[in-house]
Design a protein around this nucleic acid. Structure first.
Lengths: 212, 212
DNA sequence: ACCTGAACACCGTTCAAGT
DNA sequence: ACCTGAACACCGTTCAAGT
């Protein structure tokens, strides 16, 4: 039939990406198939391959979109909180909330098998989110070297991420928002207590006052 | 052809499970297909459905096997370390090592979409591993209530898990064993410092000595 | 009773053919 | 030039038919 070009290449691209997001959000990751997506935008499978290299490419771009949205939310939260400790707790809360609200899209971000050669714009998206964490950690422990801050940001945020992963995949008996929020807060506050306490002097705090 | 019954039902079951483990370990999760697995054990697809309800059922049993192996390694490490703090660090190290050595099998454990009604023996497997963490945390902070210990164990281990997740899926610039081990150690030691410090008195340590 | 293998309803991806 | 839709080589799962 070869329909008249009702959309430019770019429009088709955006149309497909938006539809893909809707499908994943509403019906889960496995519902995203080439045929299903093509039907949703009123084209046939073949057309998708005119705009994307393959499904992996499409998913990567969808994930970038998700990361952008996450970054937007995180920045909004970070801007409202001048105290770095409270800011980190708020960021963890925002992360948990985001994962809960967009479970499938969020799962797709980290479950998707990355291609060997990631386009440069992808890690940049991840780095932008980590920058918020690093900023707060630097304010909290200004004496730390940049490399230490980097490592701490990654360790801490992996931790928060891990809490979400296990919660979202139903590995806890209680996976309610509040229970998960509490766990994330516990992890962050204990980590920060330790991180700040060891900022100066011995890498590990000296013997503590014994419980009487 | 209907081959003579060379194996009992049980032998066929074990044969398939072992072959599945080998395939996942060597060729990755996506290589595990019914046809591929059937060929590996010298039967046809149909036979698999005589022994397993479906592929999901098979994967669940494979994951239980993986969890058993992980538990074995963890217990071995735990027994050798009487000091609870060092034990937790050793356990984190063992977890990171296990994830690195059995990346695909380990990924399958937490990426596999769990059926709505898990058989009881599955969560028991997970609980056995958490018990090791809870034991060490109790020794470290005996004043804590069991519910707090439980929550802390989950928060901390989710954290260690998260470090592995991001490392294994190549989200860090440096995903070498030593780099990941360092991150896991950092997370655990800072968390424990915080956890022990706040065990008594204020939930958050009072103002600290200022850097001069 | 045990096992086969064809069948069904799907996949991702390609590409000659139509307009 | 744009888009189709059939084709290819796969999936998981079922089940009548063979021994």
């Amino acid at each position: 039939m070869a329909r008249r070009s009702e959309h430019t290449r770019e429009q088709l691209h955006d149309l497909a990406l938006k539809a893909a997001g809707r499908i994943v959000a509403r019906e889960g990751i496995s519902a995203l198939t080439a045929r299903r997506l093509a039907a949703a935008i009123g084209y046939t499978v073949g057309s998708l391959y005119l705009v994307f290299r393959n499904l992996d490419d499409l998913i990567l771009q969808l994930n970038a979109q998700t990361l952008d949205e996450l970054h937007g939310q995180a920045r909004g939260v970070a801007e409202k909180q001048p105290d770095p400790r409270k800011r980190l707790l708020a960021l963890a809360g925002a992360y948990v909330r985001f994962a809960g609200e967009h479970r499938h899209l969020w799962r797709l971000v980290y479950e998707h098998r990355q291609p060997a050669r990631l386009p440069a714009w992808y890690p940049e998206r991840v780095a932008r989110i980590f920058a918020l964490i690093e900023g707060a950690l630097t304010e909290l422990a200004p004496a730390r070297r940049p490399a230490e801050i980097r490592q701490a940001a990654r360790a801490l945020w992996s931790g928060v991420h891990g809490v979400c992963v296990l919660a979202m995949t139903g590995r806890f008996d209680d996976s309610s928002e509040t229970a998960v929020q509490a766990m994330a807060s516990l992890l962050v506050s204990n980590f920060l207590d330790g991180f700040v306490a060891t900022a100066r002097g011995a890498r590990r705090p000296a013997a503590r006052r014994r419980v009487k």
